[in-house]
Design a protein around this nucleic acid. Structure first.
Lengths: 171, 171
DNA sequence: CTTGAAACGCTAGTCTT
DNA sequence: AAGACTAGCGTTTCAAG
């Protein structure tokens, strides 16, 4: 929440690397690798969270194992008067939209979409194109991830959160 | 590593939702929410990892706080004979490429790139365009993330891993 | 899946540098 | 200011039911 001076030294960077590699690593384990005691590691992690460097701890899930077999990037062309806030609202209302951003170039926004299959994707696309300010869309369906962990976790959170009323808050 | 029948029931889905919301949540805490004892939760999490549904636990880090202030999606047009394996190799050799995939449409591949700033991004682009089989590139620079957690964590792993020789393996 | 017990990790307080 | 140490408590883990 707060925004104190986010100073990140080499020790912090190593701790962050270890935590991104395994968010469930114990503080003693991390401490052994960086030459610190467990309480010292905890203090640094607490500070990284307080300064907003660490925003959370999440789990990477294979999307296809969850039945979300396809993935696409959709460029959206809007009417000239369309405000980004309106697009943001649309993105929040469609759980299949796992990321949304405004971009440079001809298109106004870029959406990262996950769907159960082609027919599901088509329905999502129809819903988006039904928005009054959307003029047209241009889709790129993902064929193969070229890097390991390409289908990873953070973006899946909106798709899973329907199963839980209150998300668990750390600490 | 193994690929046993990845059956995922409603309880598993709830556990996954809680773990994606907070990967450091304790098994007792999760158990209270789903009406299970801690060992029962652990058994299910172990099984989800063994069947490849859970691929890891990671930490979400604000990229800008780490000095990675800009983000772009780059479409790559290749020579007709360029194999995807070659593109995969290129993606692995450039740490700024946090995701790479083959896609439908005019372009052959789509790259997700993070850079410290415009000038850094330009250098990365030059390096990519210097690859012999790359014919041209088409970039979309990200202006604003429209969903919370849009700058998130998993994709940052390659950028941080240089700080650590051996990544911590869970379990 | 649960229970119970031992090992382990987390965390706050206190002291040292 | 930042880390080390210690002790109390919660968690993880394995055995057995």
């Amino acid at each position: 929440m707060t925004h104190l001076p986010p100073v990140v030294d080499e020790l912090d960077r190593t701790i962050l690397a270890l935590l991104t590699a395994n968010a469930r690593a114990s503080f003693v384990h991390i401490g052994q690798r960086v030459g610190l005691s467990a309480p010292a590691v905890k203090r640094r992690v607490d500070r990284l969270r307080a300064t907003g460097v660490i925003t959370g701890f999440t789990t990477t899930v294979r999307a296809d194992a969850m039945g979300w077999g396809m993935e696409a990037y959709v460029e959206v062309y809007c009417d000239s008067a369309a405000p980004p806030s309106r697009m943001s609202e649309v993105a929040r209302n469609h759980p299949e939209i796992v990321a949304a951003m405004t971009v440079t170039g001809d298109a106004d926004a870029l959406l990262h979409i996950r769907a159960r299959g082609i027919e599901h994707f088509e329905r999502v696309l129809e819903r988006i194109r039904a928005e009054p300010f959307v003029r047209r869309t241009d889709s790129r369906i993902v064929l193969t991830q070229l890097l390991p962990g390409g289908g990873g976790g953070t973006a899946l959170r909106p798709l899973l959160s329907r199963a839980v009323e209150n998300a668990a808050e750390p600490g």
